[in-house]
Amino acid sequence: MNLTGNTIFIPGATSGIGLALATRLHDKGNTVIVGGRRTELLDRIRADHPGLHTVAIDIADPAGVDAAARRVIAEHPDLDVLIAMAGIMRVEDWSSPAGFLDSAEATVTTNLLGPIRLIAAFIDHLQTRPAATIMTVSSGLAFAPLRVTPTYNATKAAIHMLSESLRLQFHGTSVDVVELVPPAVRTDLMPGQRDSDFAMPLDEFADEVIDLIDTQPDATELLVKRVEFLRWGEARGDYAGVVATLNAHDPHAF
């Protein structure tokens, strides 16, 4: 993926990692469309960042995804990058269905079905572009599990394997598949995470991602240094130690 000259749609970018990357990508000379469910946040983004475009989208609503995709493509026919950013993360107790089932189903809908629906809605258009990118967003927890968030871990592992598989399917075409693999970042994804000493500062993370896109335009995975501990534990042979270290921290640090 080239750092400049793109038209980029980022659903789920009304705060946190998504908004931080949206503003930086716009500053680098890209047209950026931010998507989100809450219209008041979209209004605030337009006021605070006049160069950003916005569109309402609820990735839990298949018809809404299709409608938003039609609008984005109609208003921005040169769209060539989709960054599937939306995600939720919840603590679950699997000792009783009452402690996890509703949360697990919502997490699968948002974190896994959401990106699948987004890709389905945009893939015909992206294949018409001379060069296009689908950027998925997994997590370091795709490679080492946090005990208290089993469904989140599972959906992010699924996103990793989906990315690997789509990259094989689109090999030799104009569509590249890039996986962004964040560590814990200081956002509101989980209660207390914004103030966690363990989590990576948001600006530091976003700046490093932009630098990776700039210096590694052919990368298939975008890995900031802080996530390599989780990403490569099994390959290094210290997976058990990685899991133990990960789960020794405050569960709300993720």
Rank of each mutant, 00 (worst) to 15 (best):
L126I: 11
L126G: 09
Q127M: 15
Q127F: 06
T128Y: 00
T128Q: 11
T128K: 10
P130S: 09
A131Y: 08
A131I: 00
T133A: 07
I134W: 10
T136V: 06
T136N: 15
V137G: 00
S138W: 14
S138E: 13
S139D: 11
S139F: 10
S139I: 09
G140C: 02
A142D: 05
A142F: 11
F143N: 08
A144L: 11
P145L: 11
L146S: 06
L146A: 13
V148M: 14
N153M: 07
N153K: 03
N153A: 04
N153L: 06
A154K: 04
T155K: 02
T155H: 02
K156R: 13
K156T: 07
A157L: 06
A157H: 09
A158E: 11
A158C: 08
I159L: 07
I159M: 03
H160G: 00
H160K: 08
L162H: 01
L162I: 07
E164P: 00
E164C: 03
S165K: 14
Q169R: 15
Q169E: 14
F170Q: 05
H171P: 00
H171N: 13
G172K: 01
G172R: 04
T173R: 04
T173L: 01
S174H: 03
S174A: 12
V175I: 06
V175N: 06
D176E: 15
V178I: 13
V178E: 02
V178D: 04
E179F: 07
E179A: 03
L180W: 12
L180I: 03
P182G: 02
P182D: 08
P182H: 04
P182L: 03
P182E: 10
A184S: 15
A184C: 07
A184W: 08
A184P: 14
V185G: 06
V185Q: 08
T187H: 10
T187K: 09
D188R: 14
D188E: 15
D188Y: 11
D188N: 15
L189N: 06
M190S: 15
P191Q: 11
P191C: 12
P191V: 14
G192Q: 07
Q193L: 14
Q193N: 14
Q193F: 03
Q193E: 12
R194P: 00
R194K: 14
D195R: 13
F198L: 09
A199C: 01
M200K: 09
M200C: 09
P201D: 09
P201Y: 02
L202M: 05
E204W: 01
E204F: 04
F205D: 01
A206N: 02
A206G: 00
A206E: 06
E208R: 12
V209S: 04
V209Q: 05
V209G: 05
I210Y: 00
D211M: 08
D214C: 06
D214I: 05
Q216K: 12
Q216E: 13
Q216C: 03
D218F: 05
D218E: 14
A219W: 11
T220H: 11
L222I: 12
L222A: 01
L223F: 12
V224H: 05
K225F: 04
